[in-house]
């Protein structure tokens, strides 16, 4: 399957330092100056790039800066080119959730309103608290990484604690809390498609805002569309593609395209406007 293969390759390319898991050391090459497109903890021993959300909070929480030109520019470029294609094709944590969803289990549908929670998390934990809740030296914390991000616990916390007895000794209630969050996300991922992406992920919230204007986008031919609703039935993100072809929730997985009986849904990669 084409998308799955791209997901595996992307996950491997962003985590190519596999010996790091055995050595218990994180990668220190120059590529860590650069943000990868998807959510991928830079404390994962295999990671060779920086997580854009972690990088953004690092800059915002520092006493030196109150705004990150560097990470904002990076997110603008990824967003304008691809929108949430990043989520559907390039994000390693999205891939992990999809693989968990393959496990047989009764399914649970996440209510649509829950999708708004990620915007609150973006504003409060990523943008507001790191800037305004600071210590005497003017330094804040990366609040999303510290209190929420299950990717950091899974990709960084567990492998590093497994190989560092001193880190195991230092782990306390915060680690237990984050471990519980991770277990919750894993259990939810078995029962529901990409619950973290739908409810929590601030990076998906940012990229989603670009979906309506991104250069890579979907297009529904209104003359061909027979409004049969097959696209909506097959969309695991709960998007009614025939009504809203560039929904903020669409991760460009392509299920709607392959299920459309009249091939009314197409993709386009154009700087200019659609011809129809």
């Amino acid at each position: 399957m084409k998308r799955r293969m791209v997901q595996y390759i992307s996950a491997l390319l962003t985590n190519v330092n596999l010996p790091g898991f055995i050595q218990g050391r994180i990668y220190q090459g120059v590529s860590k100056h650069v943000c990868v497109p998807g959510l991928n903890c830079y404390s994962c021993p295999a990671a060779i790039g920086a997580c854009p959300l972690g990088a953004l909070q690092t800059i915002l929480a520092s006493s030196r800066y109150t705004f990150s030109y560097y990470v904002t520019g990076t997110l603008l470029l990824f967003g304008v080119f691809m929108g949430r294609y990043v989520c559907g094709w390039l994000c390693p944590f999205g891939l992990i959730q999809e693989l968990l969803y393959k496990l047989p289990s009764p399914t649970w549908t996440i209510p649509r309103w829950a999708g708004y929670i990620k915007y609150v998390i973006l504003i409060v934990f990523v943008l507001f608290l790191p800037v305004f809740l600071v210590n005497n030296l003017g330094m804040g914390d990366p609040f999303f990484c510290k209190y929420i991000c299950p990717a950091g616990t899974m990709e960084g916390g567990i492998p590093l604690l497994a190989s560092h007895p001193d880190l195991r000794d230092a782990a306390g209630n915060l680690f237990l809390f984050k471990l519980l969050l991770l277990v919750l996300v894993i259990l939810l991922s078995i029962k529901s498609f990409r619950p973290f992406c739908k409810i929590i992920c601030p990076l998906g919230a940012i990229y989603g805002l670009f979906n309506p204007i991104s250069i890579y986008r979907y297009r529904v031919d209104k003359e061909k569309c027979i409004k049969c609703g097959k696209c909506a039935q097959n969309c695991k993100m709960g998007v009614e593609m025939y009504k809203e072809s560039n929904s903020l929730e669409c991760i460009r997985c392509g299920e709607c395209r392959s299920s459309c009986p009249v091939e009314a849904i197409t993709t386009t990669f154009r700087l200019g406007n659609d011809s129809k």
């Binding site: 994180i26 903890c41 830079y42 404390s43 972690g54 914390d141 990366p142 990484c145 510290k146 991000c149 950091g152 616990t153 960084g156 916390g157 590093l160 604690l161 880190l167 230092a170 782990a171 306390g172 915060l174 680690f175 809390f177 984050k178 471990l179």
Partner: peptide, 8 residues
Amino acid sequence: ICLECIGI
């Protein structure tokens, strides 16, 4: 190692 990220 980002101690916040890994839950320490």
